[in-house]
Write a protein that binds this DNA or RNA. Structure first.
Lengths: 146, 146
DNA sequence: ATTAAATAATACCTGTAAGTATTAATTTAT
DNA sequence: ATAAATTAATACTTACAGGTATTATTTAAT
């Protein structure tokens, strides 16, 4: 399971936009590229606008561009805004809170993968997608034609 | 999110049973200890029986004990039987398959936490809970009274 | 001014995971 | 034999994430 479908959509939208940072992209552009259900995609874009990641230009020739610098947008913040990070930070697999003096049976086992996961989210920004710190861009960047 | 509620229940059931390996436990015992909704718990126990992790003794003084040796039961197998492991093994956050020659934008970023998670699941058995390899038992074992 | 092309708001629908209810079957103590 | 205590099977209900539909608003090209 890992993360919700909606978070996945949000990440796909923003990572694609990050790789085409210079270009204003419309919902239609993003739909054609990402194949996320159109109306749902549109709603998510509005949500991402309200969350302040991107900003919308309305009307004819409208579309979306980033509202903030890419190097300030951590993956953790994106997921946090969509589904919250709390369920990832808790113990025994999400929901249960696990008291420090009486850890649950899986506490130790869970600790390492959980930390690796969270640390990656909290230390990686959308800018890292572009500067190749974590990723090769070679096959991923694609030119947008209007 | 990480894993489904049902997987979480299953893991809590089996880890608790593992820590009380010697004792046959009834649905009632487990309900009192784990506070999983009673009827749902009972159905999950039947499911876990059918999956071959535990075996049921029916009728008065019935209950459940393990059907297999603890050191053969990997966490990966438990989750696999409840919700499947495929969504954890795929790329971009679960569902999307990511071609090797054209990896998605998050491919590299995701690789490490995903591997840590899966390797832990695939290398840890219920027996490890008891022998202290990964966990201190001190606070977790609890005597069952009939 | 009008129309076309875009986003925004709001309400609604749907499929599925999670949980509940009912009845049947099994076993053992008495 | 009967009753009590358990698991098994099956069907139903509920909540919510995910997805649709409709209408309003905004902008710019003509």
């Amino acid at each position: 399971m890992f993360i919700s479908k909606t978070s996945e959509h949000a990440l796909r939208i923003l990572t694609y936009m990050a790789l085409n940072y210079e270009t204003q992209l419309s919902a239609r552009n993003l739909f054609e590229e990402l194949q996320i259900p159109k109306r749902y995609l549109m709603r998510l874009l509005t949500d991402l606008s309200k969350s302040g990641f991107i900003k919308a230009a309305r009307g004819r020739n409208g579309g979306y561009v980033f509202a903030r610098s890419l190097d300030t947008i951590y993956f953790s913040e994106i997921i946090d805004s969509v589904e919250g990070l709390l369920t990832f930070e808790g113990c025994v697999l999400g929901s249960t809170v696990c008291p420090v003096d009486k850890p649950c049976a899986m506490h130790q086992i869970w600790e390492k993968p959980k930390q690796t996961f969270l640390e990656t989210l909290k230390s990686t920004t959308l800018a890292d997608l572009r500067n190749g710190k974590n990723i090769r861009l070679k096959y991923s960047i694609k030119q947008i034609h209007h």
